[in-house]
Design a protein around this nucleic acid. Structure first.
Lengths: 199, 199
DNA sequence: TGAGCCATGTAAACGGTTACATGATTCC
DNA sequence: GGAATCATGTAACCGTTTACATGGCTCA
């Protein structure tokens, strides 16, 4: 029982339900305001997963209509709490995925005329600054609110997120400078190297 | 024709073939030593994609056996070059995905006893320091080699990668400190807040 | 009355990994 | 002779997004 077999989406769902019961719709909304930048989920995942989790006995559903509008709230069962705890303390397995098309375009920068490579760097920088702004306006307020109510970790995670975005924006700014300088003064070949060919 | 419809895997493939013709096997090897941390691909993607690209006229294959061992090398066609250029200079569309289970576990830290949350932080830190080391040993030498031959951008991308990994490792080190300090001295409640509940 | 939100779902398509299979060559 | 590497592929499975569908409620 201590071995975990929670689908990726089940991991967020159980965690979020631990605080209080929620509908699938609620879950989606919370995710959009909190974990979506590092752990997203769509309705196409959430609703089927809730049914699977119920069949497996990790959550229980309860009809809780608002007026005549149907609503189904899910809560953790003891078995669900157990599975959640097992996952939260499992440090043997983890998912870490990073996929970044800006980096891929940058990687092939030698295939482009310098102005085009530079334009890519500028665009990547804009992406990170824009995302950081989005982050500050959309995520930070909720994280702070939670922290004021004694939930400190979501704010900590937010700080990682904004820290990374701003680090990346600074990195691209420096890269831009370097490449611009290089474009002006024909750079000396690095020591111990034969002359470089650029097309 | 300037509108791009390259599958994610096609984007690396075309880029890598631009330097010189390669077999599917070669492509996979190069990826493992360069782009895999931000743009991976498996045989299950590469071989079928090469066939699709050939049918679409973006690459051309040529038998180039080594001794009696069969080999098929692919090279870019003019149409393939065009598609690659169009993609490389398209700054309207991009893929950026970040999925991080360490962050998700950290997010739910309020559900754990402090020692367990701290253990998670330590494990995440170890992950980033280990990955940074891997990076330095596996990727850096190849990136430097390429730079010595006039290909500067892969080294630039490597610097982003190692920079991020080390930034993350430092971030977790600081988080560890903060949480440790907090565990020793019962922290004062933040201003304008009711007493915090921690289970 | 209509826009926007609340609420629940499904089907198709996509992209990817893993596991498996095969066989030649090279090097110790 | 056997291990590692070169080389090519496929089938099954998994997880995810997107698009579509439906309908009630709330408020301007």
């Amino acid at each position: 029982m201590s071995t975990i077999n929670l689908s990726p989406t089940a991991r967020v769902i159980l965690g979020l339900l631990r605080f209080r019961p929620k509908t699938g719709y609620d879950i989606k909304n919370v995710i959009e305001l909190s974990t979506r930048f590092f752990w997203g989920a769509s309705y196409g995942q959430i609703y089927p997963e809730l049914k699977r989790l119920e069949r497996a006995g990790l959550v229980a559903s309860e009809a809780s209509p608002r007026g005549a509008r149907k609503r189904t709230e899910y809560r953790l069962t003891p078995k669900g709490e157990e599975a959640l705890d097992a996952w939260l303390t499992d440090r043997e397995r983890w998912i870490f995925e990073y996929r970044d098309e800006w980096l891929l375009r940058l990687f092939f920068g030698d295939l482009l005329p310098p102005e085009e490579a530079l334009a890519n760097v500028r665009a990547a920088r804009a992406f990170f600054t824009d995302t950081a702004r989005l982050f500050r306006t959309q995520i930070e307020p909720h994280a702070r609110e939670g922290a004021a109510e004694g939930e400190q970790f979501p704010l900590l995670v937010y700080e990682f997120g904004i820290g990374f975005l701003e680090w990346a924006a600074r990195w691209y700014a420096r890269a831009e400078e370097r490449l611009t300088r290089q474009g002006r003064e024909p750079q000396p070949p690095p020591a111990g190297t034969r002359a470089r060919g650029r097309r």
